[in-house]
Protein backbone atom coordinates (compact mmCIF):
# COMPACT_ATOMS: atom_id res chain seq x y z
CA UNK A 1 0.00 0.00 0.00
CA UNK A 2 1.26 3.46 -0.82
CA UNK A 3 1.91 4.86 2.61
CA UNK A 4 3.60 7.93 1.30
CA UNK A 5 1.05 9.26 -1.13
CA UNK A 6 1.18 12.73 0.46
CA UNK A 7 -1.69 14.80 1.77
CA UNK A 8 -4.98 15.00 -0.08
CA UNK A 9 -6.45 18.45 -0.46
CA UNK A 10 -9.44 19.17 1.74
CA UNK A 11 -11.61 19.38 -1.35
CA UNK A 12 -10.47 16.01 -2.73
CA UNK A 13 -10.82 14.34 0.68
CA UNK A 14 -14.40 15.52 1.09
CA UNK A 15 -15.33 14.83 -2.53
CA UNK A 16 -14.15 11.22 -2.16
CA UNK A 17 -16.07 10.88 1.10
CA UNK A 18 -19.17 12.28 -0.60
CA UNK A 19 -18.91 9.65 -3.31
CA UNK A 20 -18.94 6.58 -1.08
CA UNK A 21 -22.60 6.75 -2.10
CA UNK A 22 -23.10 7.81 -5.72
CA UNK A 23 -23.87 11.48 -6.15
CA UNK A 24 -23.97 14.28 -8.74
CA UNK A 25 -22.02 17.55 -8.76
CA UNK A 26 -24.50 19.70 -6.91
CA UNK A 27 -25.12 16.88 -4.43
CA UNK A 28 -21.38 16.75 -3.67
CA UNK A 29 -21.33 20.52 -3.01
CA UNK A 30 -24.25 20.25 -0.60
CA UNK A 31 -22.81 17.20 1.12
CA UNK A 32 -19.40 18.82 1.67
CA UNK A 33 -21.02 21.89 3.13
CA UNK A 34 -23.08 19.74 5.48
CA UNK A 35 -20.19 17.47 6.52
CA UNK A 36 -17.99 20.48 7.36
CA UNK A 37 -20.82 22.30 9.18
CA UNK A 38 -20.75 25.07 6.60
CA UNK A 39 -17.00 25.66 6.91
CA UNK A 40 -16.24 24.58 3.34
CA UNK A 41 -18.15 25.85 0.36
CA UNK A 42 -16.88 24.04 -2.72
CA UNK A 43 -17.22 26.28 -5.74
CA UNK A 44 -18.40 24.74 -9.00
CA UNK A 45 -15.23 25.39 -11.05
CA UNK A 46 -13.00 23.90 -8.38
CA UNK A 47 -15.26 20.86 -8.11
CA UNK A 48 -15.35 20.42 -11.89
CA UNK A 49 -11.54 20.40 -12.09
CA UNK A 50 -11.27 17.98 -9.19
CA UNK A 51 -13.86 15.58 -10.65
CA UNK A 52 -11.99 15.43 -13.98
CA UNK A 53 -8.66 14.78 -12.28
CA UNK A 54 -10.21 12.07 -10.08
CA UNK A 55 -11.78 10.43 -13.14
CA UNK A 56 -8.39 10.46 -14.94
CA UNK A 57 -6.74 8.92 -11.89
CA UNK A 58 -9.43 6.25 -11.67
CA UNK A 59 -10.30 7.16 -8.07
CA UNK A 60 -13.92 7.78 -9.04
CA UNK A 61 -16.04 6.73 -12.02
CA UNK A 62 -19.05 8.12 -13.83
CA UNK A 63 -22.24 6.07 -13.65
CA UNK A 64 -24.08 5.32 -16.92
CA UNK A 65 -26.36 8.26 -17.69
CA UNK A 66 -29.99 7.88 -16.74
CA UNK A 67 -32.55 8.90 -19.33
CA UNK A 68 -34.28 12.27 -18.83
CA UNK A 69 -31.64 13.25 -16.33
CA UNK A 70 -28.94 15.68 -17.41
CA UNK A 71 -27.11 15.30 -14.14
CA UNK A 72 -24.16 12.97 -14.26
CA UNK A 73 -23.56 10.83 -11.19
CA UNK A 74 -20.22 9.62 -9.88
CA UNK A 75 -19.08 6.98 -7.39
CA UNK A 76 -15.80 6.12 -5.67
CA UNK A 77 -13.73 3.17 -7.03
CA UNK A 78 -11.75 0.56 -5.08
CA UNK A 79 -8.56 2.55 -5.75
CA UNK A 80 -10.27 5.69 -4.45
CA UNK A 81 -11.36 3.93 -1.27
CA UNK A 82 -7.78 2.73 -0.74
CA UNK A 83 -6.45 6.28 -1.14
CA UNK A 84 -9.04 7.51 1.33
CA UNK A 85 -8.06 4.87 3.92
CA UNK A 86 -4.36 5.71 3.57
CA UNK A 87 -5.22 9.38 4.08
CA UNK A 88 -7.27 8.64 7.19
CA UNK A 89 -4.27 6.75 8.67
CA UNK A 90 -2.03 9.71 7.88
CA UNK A 91 -4.48 12.14 9.48
CA UNK A 92 -4.69 9.94 12.57
CA UNK A 93 -0.93 10.02 12.93
CA UNK A 94 -0.96 13.83 12.70
CA UNK A 95 -3.72 14.08 15.29
CA UNK A 96 -2.15 11.68 17.78
CA UNK A 97 1.28 13.35 17.56
CA UNK A 98 -0.22 16.81 17.89
CA UNK A 99 -2.34 15.93 20.89
CA UNK A 100 0.48 14.00 22.61
CA UNK A 101 3.02 16.78 22.23
CA UNK A 102 0.65 19.57 23.19
CA UNK A 103 -0.48 17.36 26.09
CA UNK A 104 -4.18 17.56 25.48
Amino acid sequence: MANNQGALTEAVYYILLSLVKSNHGYGIMQNVQQLSNGRITLAAGTLYGAINTLLDKGWIEALPEIKDSRKKEYVITATGTEVLKTEINRLEELLINGKNILGE
Binding site: T9, G45, G49
Partner: peptide, 14 residues
Protein backbone atom coordinates in the same frame (compact mmCIF):
# COMPACT_ATOMS: atom_id res chain seq x y z
CA UNK B 1 -20.93 34.62 -1.93
CA UNK B 2 -21.00 33.25 -5.46
CA UNK B 3 -17.59 31.95 -6.44
CA UNK B 4 -16.28 29.62 -9.13
CA UNK B 5 -12.97 28.72 -7.52
CA UNK B 6 -12.85 28.01 -3.81
CA UNK B 7 -9.33 26.84 -3.05
CA UNK B 8 -5.87 28.31 -3.64
CA UNK B 9 -4.81 25.52 -5.94
CA UNK B 10 -7.59 26.04 -8.47
CA UNK B 11 -7.39 29.85 -8.19
CA UNK B 12 -3.69 29.80 -9.05
CA UNK B 13 -4.30 27.56 -12.06
CA UNK B 14 -7.08 29.85 -13.23
Amino acid sequence: IFDIYSDRNSKIKY
